[in-house]
Simulated scan of single mutants.
Amino acid sequence: MRLSNLIHADDSDHVSFCHNGHTYRIGECIGKGGFGSVFSVLGKPQLVIKKIPIKSSQHYQLIQKEIELTRVRLNHPFILRSFEFQYDSGNQTVYILYERIQGSSLYTHIQQWGSNQPPLPNAWLACQWHIARQVCCGLHYLHTQGFTHRDIKPHNIMVQNSPLHAKIIDFGLSHPSHENRGLGGSKTYNAPEKLDPAYPQTHAVDLWSLGCLLFHLFFYKTIFSHSKTTAFNKKEIAIIPTIHRRITQHIDALLTTSKPEVACVLPLIRHLLQLDPNQRPSAHEAHGYLQHNQPSGMHYTAFSSSDLH
């Protein structure tokens, strides 16, 4: 991986990148989190620089992998792109040049939607259906490129506010789809087969996570919280079928009690949350279902199947 020149690495206010003959200088801090800090780029409002302190060699390898995917191998409107990468070994810090999203995570949006009674429910539902289709598009592209994300959840979907545009982020756990890579991810969204180290992990682990994400998106709680069921864990593998049966029964009950604009997404969620990975629909099929079954009165233009390629 080519590294660009880093200037004044000991002072984040003077970090510069050279990329495609252009120099990008770091601006003000616009966000902080457990991962590190995000800075604006002077004169380039469409870009940001993320500063990440390195915690270990394994952490560095995960970041390298994500940059390799998002800078070189993946190029899609619903996947966040990175453009340059620099490691400052003296300060054990990585600087990454990303495209900028003027918005927040899908998780933040879900919390906001779930805590308020929307004055225009159809407009809010239109946003949810729109985002759901975009996530399916991005996930389908990732799978066609031979990769499994392995950590699909609302926290790893960034949503640009205007125009509404979702992008999948955080590819540190991604692997070629034929590789079995253990547990990882978030237990509330992890497919049950990830608990068995001998079971091959395919695209289907992302499809289970997609089902969990869609439930969270439309019902404002995780499937486990909403159904008052314990999430899967390695100590209770034997009761996974029992937990799964409770989840399925809960979804079936919601089919008759939820308003029609939301209930119509439940059959897709039920199919995505099947114990047998081979029975889960693909991201392409999930997108087709959402496009075909979106209720009338939703004002976002539906994507055609050509947008999946």
Rank of each mutant, 00 (worst) to 15 (best):
H292S: 03
C264M: 13
M298T: 14
P53H: 13
H309E: 07
S16C: 11
L80K: 03
A231T: 13
G146V: 12
L139T: 02
R100Y: 05
I96W: 01
Q112R: 14
L106T: 04
L47G: 04
M158T: 00
Y107K: 12
L273D: 10
S105M: 02
I67D: 01
H250Q: 05
A302L: 11
L42P: 01
F78P: 00
F85M: 10
I157L: 04
N5C: 01
D88A: 10
V72Y: 13
S306F: 06
I239G: 07
S115L: 07
V205P: 03
C264E: 12
T148R: 06
N156G: 02
L142H: 06
L207Y: 10
M158W: 00
A191D: 05
A302D: 04
S174T: 09
D151N: 10
D276K: 14
S282E: 06
A253S: 14
Y98W: 10
S115P: 07
Y199R: 12
C127G: 06
P197I: 02
L142W: 02
I67P: 00
C127S: 13
W129P: 13
E236D: 14
K55A: 15
L214V: 07
I251C: 13
L214K: 09
A126Q: 14
R2L: 11
P281A: 06
D151G: 03
P45Q: 08
P241S: 08
P281Y: 08
P200W: 01
K153L: 01
Y289H: 04
K50Q: 14
H250F: 13
L266M: 12
D13K: 08
I168T: 00
F219H: 13
S104P: 00
I49Y: 07
S227N: 07
I131H: 13
P163Q: 15
I63F: 01
G114M: 08
N5S: 02
L125Y: 11
N233L: 04
H178R: 03
G90I: 08
Q102P: 00
C18Q: 02
K44R: 13
S104W: 01
P77T: 01
V94L: 10
Q92F: 10
R246C: 12
Q86G: 15
T256R: 15
I237R: 15
N293F: 12
A204D: 12
P281M: 09
H271T: 09
H271M: 08
H178G: 02
A191P: 03
Q117A: 12
N233Q: 10
L3K: 02
T144G: 04
N293W: 05
E285A: 15
H226V: 04
M158K: 08
R133C: 09
L254Q: 15
S105Y: 04
M1S: 14
H59K: 07
L62G: 00
E179C: 07
A204R: 05
E28T: 09
W113A: 11
F35R: 06
Q279N: 11
P192V: 06
F224A: 09
R270L: 04
I110L: 07
W113G: 11
A198T: 12
Y300Q: 10
R2Q: 09
G27C: 08
N116K: 14
L69I: 11
T230Q: 15
S105K: 11
L210F: 07
V265E: 03
H140D: 14
I239V: 15
R71W: 01
G34V: 02
K187T: 03
S115T: 12
D276V: 09
F147E: 14
F224D: 08
F218T: 12
I157C: 02
C18M: 01
